[in-house]
Simulated assay, not measured.
Amino acid sequence: MAKVCISCGKGPAFGQSRSHSMRATKRRFDANLQKVRLLVNGAPTREYVCTRCLKANKVQKAV
């Protein structure tokens, strides 16, 4: 299962780490995803949601 936000689709971004000598090595910038209990089609399920969507109340949490 890919770590992608169920609400907005945000996932990992890719770039490069640069050392002092400016040598480039590949790295991965992971989104800040949290596993949350949500109501999806009326049933509670655990899904990954980014903190931006959680803060903006774009998803409905299961109580």
Rank of each mutant, 00 (worst) to 15 (best):
L54R: 03
A31W: 00
K10Q: 13
A13Q: 11
G15M: 03
G15C: 03
R27D: 14
K35A: 12
L39A: 05
P12V: 08
S7Y: 04
V59K: 00
F29D: 09
A31Y: 00
V36P: 00
S7N: 11
K10H: 09
C8A: 01
K26F: 12
N41I: 05
D30H: 04
A31P: 05
K61Q: 12
L54V: 06
A24D: 11
A13E: 12
N57F: 09
R23A: 12
R37F: 04
L38C: 05
M22E: 14
G11S: 10
A13I: 03
P44S: 04
A24W: 11
E47S: 03
P12W: 06
F29L: 08
R23P: 05
A2K: 14
Q34P: 00
V40M: 05
L39S: 09
A62L: 03
D30G: 02
F14S: 07
S7V: 15
Q60Y: 04
A31D: 04
S17L: 13
K61I: 10
R52S: 14
R37E: 14
S7K: 11
R37T: 14
L39Q: 09
P12H: 09
C50I: 01
Q34W: 04
V63C: 09
T25V: 10
R37K: 15
T45E: 14
A24E: 15
R37Y: 05
A24T: 12
L38S: 01
K3N: 15
S19I: 05
V40R: 09
G9M: 08
R52M: 09
G42H: 02
N32D: 12
D30E: 12
P44A: 06
Q60W: 03
V63T: 13
L54N: 02
T25I: 04
N41T: 09
R27N: 15
G11D: 04
C50H: 00
G9A: 05
R28P: 00
L38M: 03
G15D: 04
K10I: 14
R23W: 08
A24R: 15
L39T: 11
D30F: 04
L33F: 01
N57D: 14
A24C: 11
K35E: 13
M1C: 07
D30W: 04
S19D: 15
H20E: 14
A43L: 09
C5E: 01
S17F: 10
R28K: 14
A2P: 14
R23C: 07
R37G: 08
A43P: 01
R46Q: 08
E47C: 03
R52K: 12
K58W: 10
R28V: 13
A56S: 12
L39N: 09
M1P: 07
F29Y: 15
G9S: 05
